[in-house]
Design a protein around this nucleic acid. Structure first.
Lengths: 153, 153
DNA sequence: TATTGTTATACTCTATAACTATA
DNA sequence: TATAGTTATAGAGTATAACAATA
């Protein structure tokens, strides 16, 4: 089969190329999995962080997810419009918004988690049984080199 | 404090997050490694493909690297300005440009390859000896699911 | 008529700066 | 004075559409 290309100079020899395209493939699978639940990837990221713990401020969310606080505004606007999160002024510091999941948000998150997990399984299908876990562990080690700057928490 | 974070809801549990940030870290290292040679990542990708084989058309290059042909125009403009590649009309089909490395381009590529390889080693340093190879193999399997659409070749 | 390369345009994503309201 | 959130703006990066030259 001529589709095999072990030739020198192949872009797939470059690790950055492999990471980019692996990421792109998983993004496409995740988009497809999340779309029926009315979520995009960024919204899903916010949702699952909120579902795991207490309400957080917008900047705390932004810090945890490694995005700009200004980016978070639009994400939360969308989630609020969908009735998935609520914004409330923090009683202890009224400059801050407490972002909390609604009941509907919790249900949406449960469904979206399941859908995203299925997308990851499909993505990892080409690997042998335990290799998915190994991949995850390796990537975690590579990313953990410099911990994300946790701002005001 | 506890830099370990096994808490539920962590973004690092999400494979897409890990792939994205691993990619970003390698990109940053590659940018730093390539900058002294006057190249960015995209230009380096073109260079090493050309260095490995015969001159190619712009669309063949774009197809191999998985980018849009219109994107390739600007990349080649920059490489041509730097005296690293030449554009010549293909005698067999004058619609096509034969993109070839100059002597200087070959030297630049050799230096850039070494610099990029060092960046990959630094990136993979957190992993045990053979794990880098395993990571590469796994990513290749994940990416090879659907072969890139090789157009006119 | 179809294809290669080019240009101009638009779109996505994200970051920067300035503003408000609170502290 | 400093911080949380908001808004407007600008900057990468990339794709889409129309065009010229060639087949």
């Amino acid at each position: 089969m001529s589709s095999e290309r072990p030739a020198a100079g192949e872009p797939s020899e470059v690790l950055a190329y492999l990471l980019k395209h692996a990421h792109q493939r998983l993004m496409a699978l995740a988009d497809t999995a999340l779309a029926p639940h009315g979520l995009d990837r960024k919204e899903f990221g916010v949702l699952r962080v909120l579902a795991a713990g207490e309400p957080l401020s917008q900047q705390a969310l932004a810090g945890l997810l490694g995005v700009d606080p200004t980016t978070m505004v639009a994400v939360l606007d969308a989630l609020e419009d969908k009735g998935i999160v609520t914004r409330r002024p923090d009683p202890a510091d009224r400059r801050r918004n407490q972002i909390a999941l609604t009941a509907r948000g919790q249900a949406t998150n449960a469904a979206a988690e399941a859908a995203y997990a299925a997308a990851e399984r499909e993505f990892l299908a080409p690997l042998a049984g335990a290799e998915g876990g190994e991949l995850r562990r390796m990537l975690l080690a590579l990313v953990a080199v410099e911990p994300p700057p946790s701002k005001g928490a």
